[in-house]
């Protein structure tokens, strides 16, 4: 990995001026990475960059505000959340150093698990970019990468880190496999009643652990989240379908025009509820109506923070 060696070198040079650099390190097994906080020289060698680097390190920025000089190793999709936060003036550009690289997609553990049973059974996994060869127990299988990668990678149009201070290795030439979101299209073939029933079934499984909120890089309210507020009281403590559904709608509405579709919420969900369907739908509407892609240009104004007197793209409602 040439990019990894370059990244490490760049971090080594930049580290004296930084309080911390956030990246990924090898996790508890070969198929997982965990977040790495580089504070000293010897930590640098722990850095890994591979198809298991699913976590968005930008999520930790929320805890790092307040003058700390932070370095971040970011995939293309992760960098969008930083740009969006910069745009909302929640971060200062001079406090950040971003180390970029070309990402070729990450794997989805839920898909691996669905295909090969428990992830613990997988003894080896080889990824050549187009095919993944997995050995689990006594069977060996080669599966196209697109069947095991995260959903966001299928429609990804930003494989290279945006607005980075340092870029390592070659740019990724990865193309989106399809311009449209197939899962969402399939879902929208259902009737209204079927969709409503589907969500009720899903929300019934929700345990409201708030992992989706806590993993979200854009959820910056921390202790002031509407979901925990008693005055006004939006949600009861009951974990029932209605409250769970309302919580998801709060999350979606608060991310309108801000969601960068990094997919962290769905990945963090312990119940594997496909909540990205809701977020992708909303991001698609924002794209259609305001021609706005969240987190791609720090100079733009978020679409719900501004208006036009005549809205050419909004139908007049009589």
């Amino acid at each position: 990995m040439q990019a990894l060696a370059e990244l490490k070198e760049q971090i080594r040079q930049a580290l004296p001026d930084l309080d911390v650099v956030i990246g990924w390190q090898q996790g508890y097994d070969a198929l997982h990475t965990s977040p790495l906080f580089i504070r000293s020289e010897e930590d640098i060698d722990k850095l890994v960059v591979n198809e298991f680097c699913v976590v968005n390190p930008a999520t930790y920025l929320r805890e790092m505000r307040g003058g700390k000089k932070v370095g971040l190793v970011l995939k293309g999709c992760d960098s969008r959340s930083v740009i969006q936060l910069l745009q909302e003036k929640l971060l200062k550009e001079e406090d950040l150093t971003i180390f970029g690289f070309g990402c070729n997609g990450v794997l989805n553990h839920t898909k691996l698990q669905a295909r090969f049973g428990d992830i613990g059974f997988i003894t080896s996994l080889e990824n050549d970019g187009t095919n993944v060869t997995v050995e689990a127990g006594d069977k060996k299988e080669t599966v196209p990468f697109t069947e095991l990668c995260a959903d966001k990678c299928l429609t990804c149009s930003y494989p290279n880190t945006l607005q980075c201070s340092h870029f390592a290795g070659e740019e990724s030439a990865k193309q989106a496999d399809s311009a449209t979101d197939k899962a969402l299209e399939d879902f929208e073939k259902l009737t209204m009643e079927e969709r409503f029933t589907f969500w009720q079934d899903q929300m019934r499984r929700c345990i409201r652990c708030y992992a989706c909120r806590n993993a979200c890089p854009m959820c910056v309210c921390k202790d002031h989240c509407l979901a925990n507020s008693r005055e006004p009281k939006w949600l009861s403590e009951d974990v029932d379908v209605q409250n769970n559904f309302m919580f998801q709608l709060i999350h979606v509405m608060h991310l309108t025009g801000r969601c960068v579709e990094c997919g962290e919420c769905e990945r963090a969900c312990p119940m594997d509820i496909p909540i990205m369907l809701l977020r992708r739908k909303m991001a698609g509407i924002v794209r259609d109506v305001f021609a706005y892609n969240a987190g791609t240009n720090a100079e733009e104004t978020p679409p719900l923070m501004c208006f036009k007197v005549e809205e050419p793209t909004i139908e007049e409602r009589h």
Partner: peptide, 13 residues
């Protein structure tokens, strides 16, 4: 307008 267009995916007409 955002809400109006979004509602369909939740199954609320």
């Amino acid at each position: 307008e955002m809400l109006k267009q979004f509602l369909s995916v939740t199954g609320i007409d």
